[in-house]
């Protein structure tokens, strides 16, 4: 498979996953702002922090905006701003651009779905819907992503393309889950005294909702306790949006690509992800909290960056390799 095509398939999957996650946390913030009517603006800034782009918004819209207008402005910014690279529209546009580069690797239905979704997001209908019934709109985004994933799962041959696609999806998901947890943790646990209040419980529930994990969490842990939520979102091996779960799947994809047996490595991508995954696999939530969740997640982000670099140098940037391989 062409390196450029692999690169595009990988990024296509990442951008779709990113768009989905943006929709998730906007939607959940919408809901929790309704539960917290006294301070409507307060719920929204963390959203931008999760995406790491608070400064871009403030530069564009200024600090002086009234708190009650801020929610709608941030929502529009995250959903539709074409200049902002992590908005839903920008992510889906780039996903589609990447898909156009690699149409030969996708079943027609997968392409057609993504293409329709792109046209919809750019229509006035989408803007109207986002303004009138935002919850429905953000559900549509999530559903569009599910549908794409479903089409891929049921139509794509399990070859290189498929593994690059899944690799992109799971690395992005791990990244997004870690960001959202990091930001919410700050908001949720500013001081240990806040633990146990009613509002707190609602906010933790909202966090679980934002990763569609509320029901799965209840089944596994029952009562909502902050440590258990962290355990669930970081170290769970069964919940498909938990960071460890995502890393295990991503590592499988890399090993499938090279045929390397589990437990060993042949390139930097495999080495870096194995270390990162092992780091999570051989710890527990007490250690994580003791180290400091923020510090822990910071290290994780750095690790994910190193995995990305490893993938780039191993598969996409062929000429920088010392050794050329030739196929006849």
């Amino acid at each position: 498979m062409l390196s450029r095509v692999a690169d595009s398939v990988y990024w296509m999957a990442r951008y779709i996953e990113r768009a989905e996650n943006v929709a998730r946390y906007v939607d959940v913030s919408l809901e929790s702002s309704m539960d917290n009517p006294t301070n409507p603006g307060k719920q929204w800034m963390p959203l931008l922090a999760a995406a790491g782009d608070q400064a871009i918004f403030l530069e564009k819209y200024g600090e002086g905006m009234a708190a009650r207008d801020r929610g709608a402005a941030i929502m529009r910014f995250l959903a539709f701003d074409q200049e902002y690279p992590n908005s839903i529209v920008s992510c889906v546009t780039r996903a589609r651009e990447n898909a156009r580069q690699v149409r030969g690797s996708l079943a027609l239905e997968a392409w057609e779905h993504l293409n329709k979704f792109y046209h919809y997001l750019n229509s006035s209908e989408a803007r109207r819907r986002a303004a009138e019934s935002p919850h429905d709109f953000f559900s549509e985004i999530r559903t569009a992503s599910y549908l794409f994933e479903g089409i891929v799962e049921s139509t794509m041959s399990r070859g290189e393309e498929y593994n690059f696609l899944k690799l992109g999806r799971f690395l992005e998901r791990a990244d997004q889950t870690s960001r959202i947890l990091d930001v919410k943790y700050f908001i949720l646990l500013p001081t240990p005294m806040d633990v146990g209040s009613v509002v707190d419980d609602l906010l933790w529930a909202a966090l679980l909702h934002s990763v569609s994990g509320y029901e799965m969490f209840r089944k596994r842990h029952g009562r909502i306790v902050p440590e258990k939520v962290v355990d669930f979102l970081v170290l769970d091996r069964e919940f498909p949006r938990a960071i460890l779960y995502c890393l295990e799947r991503a590592e499988e994809c890399l090993l499938n690509l090279s045929g390397t047996p589990m437990g060993s490595f042949r390139n930097n991508a495999e080495k870096n992800i194995a270390r990162l995954r092992a780091n999570l696999a051989y710890t527990n939530v007490e250690e994580v909290i003791h180290q400091g969740l923020h510090e822990f997640l910071d290290d994780l982000q750095t690790g994910l960056g190193q995995v990305g670099e490893g993938i780039f140098e191993t598969f996409f940037a062929l000429d920088t390799q010392a050794q050329y391989q030739f196929q006849q």
Binding site: M1, L2, S3, R4, V5, A6, G104, E160, F164, L257, F315, L318, D319, Y324, Q325, F326, Q327
Partner: peptide, 24 residues
């Protein structure tokens, strides 16, 4: 394969494309 100029390279008198498994 659909290739762009950047996917191709000439080496040792042959034309190759850059793939995830080396030059083809």
């Amino acid at each position: 394969e659909l290739v762009t100029g950047g996917d191709l390279t000439v080496r040792d008198g042959y034309l190759y494309m850059r793939t995830t498994r080396g030059f083809k």
